[in-house]
Protein backbone atom coordinates (compact mmCIF):
# COMPACT_ATOMS: atom_id res chain seq x y z
CA UNK A 1 0.00 0.00 0.00
CA UNK A 2 1.07 3.57 -0.61
CA UNK A 3 -0.04 6.65 1.30
CA UNK A 4 0.47 10.25 0.20
CA UNK A 5 0.21 12.97 2.84
CA UNK A 6 0.47 16.75 2.67
CA UNK A 7 2.79 19.11 4.54
CA UNK A 8 1.82 22.76 4.25
CA UNK A 9 3.70 25.64 5.81
CA UNK A 10 1.64 28.34 7.51
CA UNK A 11 2.36 31.47 9.49
CA UNK A 12 2.40 30.90 13.24
CA UNK A 13 -1.19 31.55 14.41
CA UNK A 14 0.18 33.64 17.27
CA UNK A 15 2.19 35.94 15.01
CA UNK A 16 0.73 39.36 14.37
CA UNK A 17 0.29 40.08 10.69
CA UNK A 18 0.88 43.63 9.56
CA UNK A 19 -0.96 44.97 6.53
CA UNK A 20 0.67 47.24 3.95
CA UNK A 21 -1.03 50.38 2.64
CA UNK A 22 -1.94 48.51 -0.55
CA UNK A 23 -3.82 45.87 1.41
CA UNK A 24 -1.28 43.07 1.17
CA UNK A 25 0.58 41.76 4.18
CA UNK A 26 4.20 41.93 5.19
CA UNK A 27 5.77 38.58 5.95
CA UNK A 28 9.06 39.86 7.36
CA UNK A 29 9.98 38.23 10.63
CA UNK A 30 6.88 36.05 10.80
CA UNK A 31 7.51 32.55 12.12
CA UNK A 32 6.20 29.63 10.09
CA UNK A 33 5.01 26.26 11.34
CA UNK A 34 3.65 23.06 9.85
CA UNK A 35 -0.13 23.47 9.39
CA UNK A 36 -1.62 21.84 12.54
CA UNK A 37 -4.11 19.81 10.51
CA UNK A 38 -1.22 18.41 8.44
CA UNK A 39 0.34 17.19 11.69
CA UNK A 40 -2.80 15.11 12.22
CA UNK A 41 -2.73 13.96 8.59
CA UNK A 42 0.92 12.86 8.93
CA UNK A 43 0.19 11.01 12.16
CA UNK A 44 -2.75 9.29 10.44
CA UNK A 45 -0.53 8.24 7.53
CA UNK A 46 2.09 6.84 9.91
CA UNK A 47 -0.45 4.89 11.94
CA UNK A 48 -2.04 3.44 8.80
CA UNK A 49 1.40 2.54 7.46
CA UNK A 50 2.27 0.79 10.72
CA UNK A 51 -0.95 -1.20 10.61
CA UNK A 52 -0.90 -2.03 6.90
CA UNK A 53 2.73 -1.97 5.92
CA UNK A 54 2.61 0.97 3.54
CA UNK A 55 5.10 3.30 1.94
CA UNK A 56 4.52 6.92 2.98
CA UNK A 57 5.28 10.05 0.98
CA UNK A 58 4.87 13.67 2.09
CA UNK A 59 4.26 16.45 -0.40
CA UNK A 60 4.61 20.17 0.17
CA UNK A 61 3.88 22.91 -2.35
CA UNK A 62 5.54 26.29 -1.98
CA UNK A 63 8.84 28.12 -1.93
CA UNK A 64 12.12 26.47 -1.08
CA UNK A 65 11.65 26.98 2.67
CA UNK A 66 8.97 24.30 2.67
CA UNK A 67 11.70 21.67 2.30
CA UNK A 68 12.56 22.27 5.94
CA UNK A 69 8.91 21.80 6.87
CA UNK A 70 8.80 18.52 4.94
CA UNK A 71 11.98 17.23 6.57
CA UNK A 72 11.23 18.32 10.12
CA UNK A 73 7.47 17.89 10.13
CA UNK A 74 7.09 14.74 8.07
CA UNK A 75 10.34 12.84 7.36
CA UNK A 76 11.68 13.25 10.90
CA UNK A 77 8.45 11.77 12.25
CA UNK A 78 8.87 8.70 10.05
CA UNK A 79 7.45 9.48 6.60
CA UNK A 80 9.63 7.60 4.07
CA UNK A 81 10.28 10.27 1.45
CA UNK A 82 9.29 13.74 0.37
CA UNK A 83 8.25 15.68 -2.71
CA UNK A 84 8.64 19.42 -2.96
CA UNK A 85 6.70 21.15 -5.73
CA UNK A 86 8.32 24.51 -6.20
CA UNK A 87 5.81 27.33 -6.67
CA UNK A 88 5.08 30.79 -5.34
CA UNK A 89 2.38 29.95 -2.89
CA UNK A 90 0.76 33.37 -2.89
CA UNK A 91 0.10 32.95 -6.61
CA UNK A 92 -1.89 29.74 -6.10
CA UNK A 93 -5.53 29.25 -5.22
CA UNK A 94 -7.07 26.05 -3.84
CA UNK A 95 -7.86 24.76 -7.32
CA UNK A 96 -4.22 25.12 -8.40
CA UNK A 97 -3.06 23.28 -5.28
CA UNK A 98 -5.55 20.51 -6.04
CA UNK A 99 -4.37 20.32 -9.66
CA UNK A 100 -0.77 19.99 -8.52
CA UNK A 101 -1.73 17.27 -6.06
CA UNK A 102 -3.70 15.49 -8.77
CA UNK A 103 -0.67 15.46 -11.06
CA UNK A 104 1.45 14.00 -8.26
CA UNK A 105 -1.23 11.42 -7.44
CA UNK A 106 -1.18 10.34 -11.07
CA UNK A 107 2.60 9.86 -10.91
CA UNK A 108 2.65 8.07 -7.55
CA UNK A 109 -0.68 6.19 -7.65
CA UNK A 110 -1.26 6.05 -3.88
CA UNK A 111 -4.13 4.10 -2.34
CA UNK A 112 -4.92 6.83 0.16
CA UNK A 113 -4.23 10.57 0.25
CA UNK A 114 -4.49 12.18 3.67
CA UNK A 115 -4.72 15.98 3.88
CA UNK A 116 -5.60 18.45 6.60
CA UNK A 117 -9.21 19.58 6.73
CA UNK A 118 -8.09 23.17 6.37
CA UNK A 119 -5.03 25.34 6.21
CA UNK A 120 -5.05 27.73 9.15
CA UNK A 121 -3.80 30.67 7.08
CA UNK A 122 -6.40 30.71 4.29
CA UNK A 123 -9.07 28.77 6.22
CA UNK A 124 -10.53 27.66 2.85
CA UNK A 125 -11.30 24.01 3.53
CA UNK A 126 -11.45 23.16 -0.19
CA UNK A 127 -8.37 21.29 -1.39
CA UNK A 128 -9.29 17.75 -0.30
CA UNK A 129 -12.75 17.93 -1.84
CA UNK A 130 -11.49 19.53 -5.08
CA UNK A 131 -8.82 16.86 -5.40
CA UNK A 132 -11.35 14.07 -4.80
CA UNK A 133 -13.67 15.37 -7.52
CA UNK A 134 -10.82 15.95 -9.97
CA UNK A 135 -9.69 12.36 -9.50
CA UNK A 136 -13.23 10.97 -9.39
CA UNK A 137 -12.41 9.43 -5.99
CA UNK A 138 -14.55 9.20 -2.88
CA UNK A 139 -13.79 11.49 0.04
CA UNK A 140 -14.12 11.31 3.80
CA UNK A 141 -13.55 14.80 5.16
CA UNK A 142 -13.20 16.06 8.76
CA UNK A 143 -12.12 12.62 9.97
CA UNK A 144 -11.91 11.88 13.68
CA UNK A 145 -11.37 8.13 13.27
CA UNK A 146 -9.96 6.15 10.34
CA UNK A 147 -9.70 2.39 9.88
CA UNK A 148 -8.86 0.46 6.75
CA UNK A 149 -10.70 -2.81 6.28
CA UNK A 150 -9.91 -4.61 3.06
CA UNK A 151 -10.34 -2.20 0.19
CA UNK A 152 -12.44 0.26 2.16
CA UNK A 153 -11.69 3.02 4.66
CA UNK A 154 -14.22 3.32 7.48
CA UNK A 155 -14.18 6.92 8.62
CA UNK A 156 -15.98 8.74 11.41
CA UNK A 157 -16.51 12.39 10.56
CA UNK A 158 -17.13 15.41 12.77
CA UNK A 159 -20.22 17.11 11.35
CA UNK A 160 -22.59 19.77 12.61
CA UNK A 161 -25.13 17.53 14.28
CA UNK A 162 -22.75 14.94 15.72
CA UNK A 163 -20.65 12.11 14.29
CA UNK A 164 -21.19 10.45 10.94
CA UNK A 165 -19.58 7.18 9.86
CA UNK A 166 -19.13 6.36 6.19
CA UNK A 167 -17.25 3.79 4.16
CA UNK A 168 -15.21 4.87 1.16
CA UNK A 169 -13.68 2.47 -1.33
CA UNK A 170 -9.95 2.84 -1.99
CA UNK A 171 -8.33 4.75 -3.50
CA UNK A 172 -9.81 7.57 -1.45
CA UNK A 173 -9.17 11.04 -0.06
CA UNK A 174 -9.26 11.62 3.69
CA UNK A 175 -9.09 15.01 5.40
CA UNK A 176 -7.99 15.05 9.03
CA UNK A 177 -9.71 16.89 11.83
CA UNK A 178 -7.83 17.78 15.01
CA UNK A 179 -9.29 15.05 17.17
CA UNK A 180 -8.16 12.29 14.80
CA UNK A 181 -5.02 11.60 16.83
CA UNK A 182 -2.22 13.08 18.94
CA UNK A 183 0.67 13.76 16.58
CA UNK A 184 3.91 12.19 17.75
CA UNK A 185 7.10 14.16 18.25
CA UNK A 186 10.09 13.53 16.06
CA UNK A 187 12.76 11.54 17.89
CA UNK A 188 16.41 12.55 17.76
CA UNK A 189 17.12 9.47 15.63
CA UNK A 190 14.24 10.47 13.39
CA UNK A 191 15.66 13.94 12.92
CA UNK A 192 19.07 12.48 12.01
CA UNK A 193 17.55 10.00 9.57
CA UNK A 194 15.38 12.66 7.96
CA UNK A 195 18.47 14.48 6.70
CA UNK A 196 19.26 11.54 4.43
CA UNK A 197 15.79 10.64 3.26
CA UNK A 198 15.03 11.33 -0.41
CA UNK A 199 13.31 14.63 -1.18
CA UNK A 200 12.39 15.00 -4.82
CA UNK A 201 12.07 18.48 -6.31
CA UNK A 202 9.52 19.18 -9.01
CA UNK A 203 8.24 22.37 -10.59
CA UNK A 204 5.03 23.26 -12.38
CA UNK A 205 6.73 22.63 -15.70
CA UNK A 206 7.47 19.02 -14.73
CA UNK A 207 3.79 18.56 -13.97
CA UNK A 208 2.68 20.36 -17.15
CA UNK A 209 0.82 22.93 -15.10
CA UNK A 210 2.84 26.03 -15.91
CA UNK A 211 0.09 27.52 -18.08
CA UNK A 212 -2.62 27.31 -15.44
CA UNK A 213 -4.02 30.49 -13.89
CA UNK A 214 -5.66 30.76 -10.47
CA UNK A 215 -9.34 31.72 -10.49
CA UNK A 216 -9.62 33.26 -7.05
CA UNK A 217 -7.62 36.35 -6.17
CA UNK A 218 -7.28 38.27 -2.92
CA UNK A 219 -7.53 41.93 -3.90
CA UNK A 220 -7.26 43.44 -0.46
CA UNK A 221 -6.77 42.60 3.21
CA UNK A 222 -8.34 44.51 6.10
CA UNK A 223 -8.14 44.49 9.84
CA UNK A 224 -11.52 43.46 11.26
CA UNK A 225 -13.32 46.12 13.29
CA UNK A 226 -11.81 45.90 16.75
CA UNK A 227 -13.74 45.20 19.88
CA UNK A 228 -12.67 46.95 23.03
CA UNK A 229 -12.59 45.61 26.53
CA UNK A 230 -15.66 46.39 28.58
CA UNK A 231 -15.94 46.62 32.34
CA UNK A 232 -15.19 44.34 35.22
CA UNK A 233 -18.30 43.96 37.37
CA UNK A 234 -17.98 43.65 41.13
CA UNK A 235 -20.41 40.79 41.63
CA UNK A 236 -23.38 38.87 40.27
CA UNK A 237 -25.81 41.65 41.25
CA UNK A 238 -23.94 44.21 39.20
CA UNK A 239 -23.78 41.82 36.22
CA UNK A 240 -27.56 41.38 36.38
CA UNK A 241 -28.06 45.15 36.47
CA UNK A 242 -25.76 45.62 33.46
CA UNK A 243 -27.47 42.90 31.43
CA UNK A 244 -30.97 44.15 32.17
CA UNK A 245 -30.59 47.92 32.08
CA UNK A 246 -27.47 48.65 29.99
CA UNK A 247 -27.19 45.81 27.47
CA UNK A 248 -30.92 44.99 27.69
CA UNK A 249 -30.39 41.37 26.77
CA UNK A 250 -32.20 39.72 29.66
Amino acid sequence: MKILVTAKRVTDPNASLVINDDGSWIDDDVEYILNPFCENAIECALELAEAHDAETIAIGIGEEEIQRTIRQGALARGIDRGIHVDAEEEELDSEMIAKILKAVVEREEPDVVVLGKQAVDGDSNQVSQLLAEMLGWPQATFASEVKIEGDEAIVTREVDGGLETIGVGLPAIISADLRLNDPRYASLAGIMKAKKKPLEELDLDDLELDDEEPKVRVVKLHEPAGRSAGVVVADVDELIVKLTTEARVL
Binding site: P13, L17, K215, E223
Partner: peptide, 25 residues
Protein backbone atom coordinates in the same frame (compact mmCIF):
# COMPACT_ATOMS: atom_id res chain seq x y z
CA UNK B 1 -17.47 46.10 -4.37
CA UNK B 2 -13.79 45.95 -5.17
CA UNK B 3 -11.67 47.72 -7.78
CA UNK B 4 -12.00 44.49 -9.78
CA UNK B 5 -15.79 44.21 -9.55
CA UNK B 6 -18.13 42.43 -7.19
CA UNK B 7 -16.28 40.25 -4.71
CA UNK B 8 -16.65 38.53 -1.37
CA UNK B 9 -15.27 39.33 2.05
CA UNK B 10 -14.02 36.34 4.00
CA UNK B 11 -12.02 35.84 7.19
CA UNK B 12 -8.53 34.35 7.04
CA UNK B 13 -6.00 33.46 9.75
CA UNK B 14 -8.79 32.60 12.21
CA UNK B 15 -10.40 35.96 11.52
CA UNK B 16 -7.26 37.93 12.36
CA UNK B 17 -7.63 39.50 8.89
CA UNK B 18 -10.47 39.88 6.43
CA UNK B 19 -9.77 39.37 2.73
CA UNK B 20 -11.71 40.76 -0.21
CA UNK B 21 -11.54 38.17 -2.97
CA UNK B 22 -12.72 38.17 -6.57
CA UNK B 23 -13.39 35.14 -8.74
CA UNK B 24 -12.20 35.31 -12.34
CA UNK B 25 -14.02 32.28 -13.78
Amino acid sequence: DTDDGVGFRRPMWAGALLADVVIDS
